[in-house]
Each structure stands twice: as structure tokens, then as C-alpha cells.
Design a protein around this nucleic acid. Sequence first.
DNA 1: TTTCTTACA
DNA 2: TGTAAGAA
Length: 138
Amino acid sequence: MSGPKEAQQAAELTYTISELAAEFGITARAIRFYEDQDLLQPERDGIKRVYLRRDRGRLKLILRGKRVGFSLSDIGEMLALYDPNNESREQLKLTLGKSRDRLAILRRQRQDIDEVIAELEDGCRQISDLMETQTETS
DNA sequence: TTTCTTACA
DNA sequence: TGTAAGAA
């Protein structure tokens, strides 16, 4: 109970890239990639990356954004104004707008899919009827 | 062992 | 983003 790990944990809650990768089920490579895209800006202990709580929070938001289909650049814009303390109204406004855009896109896609499904169902129906007719005739 | 960078797929 | 290579 006196190793460097405990001492550091008592000082300030920090994470290594591998810890975050394990926690969120992604690879360290992905985390470094997000940094390249300016979505994350961890501290440095020499050459080692040191992630603080706000980095962890940002990563969580990045992954949530990806899940719903936002591009990394969109996420970057939303995160640019992200402040764990005072949620800027601009930030919220931007995110709300992008969310509504995404919703509109998904709804249109769902409609398109429903239409294609209907066409295929109709096509299958016609083929089935044709086959039954041929069976009866031959 | 773990992490880093760089380069290529 | 995965993988590979070589360094720290």
C-alpha cells in the first residue's frame, strides 16, 4: 500500500492510455488517433500521455457521438466549446442543431429503407404468384 | 512490459 | 483505425 501507483492515485486521479482503452473497450491507437484529430489533448509526463478526468469525460462524449453517427470533425466542433464546468449555451446550441440534423438524416434513411423493403416484398409476391401459376399450368 | 512515433494498408 | 518496426 505504498507503491508509486497508490501515491499517484492519492495525489490526483489520472489515467494511462491503456487504462482508458480497457475501460472503454477501444485500442490505444484509437485514442491517439482522436488526439491527432484534436479531439483530445492529454497532459504529458515526459513522453508518456497522462489523461485527467476531463480527458476521460471528453473521450466518453467522443464515443457517444461516434455511436450515433457523428463524424469526428462534427464531434470536434461540439467538443471545442466543451467545458466540464460551465456548459456553454453555444456548445449546447451547436450540439442540438447537429443532433436534429442527424435525426433528420436517419429518419429519411429509415423511410428509404421502408420503401425498398416494400418494393422487394411486392416483387417476391409477384414472383411467388407467377411460380404458382406455372406449377398449375405445367 | 508498456508506450511512443512513423509509415503503410 | 489496424499492424508493423524500432526506440525508450
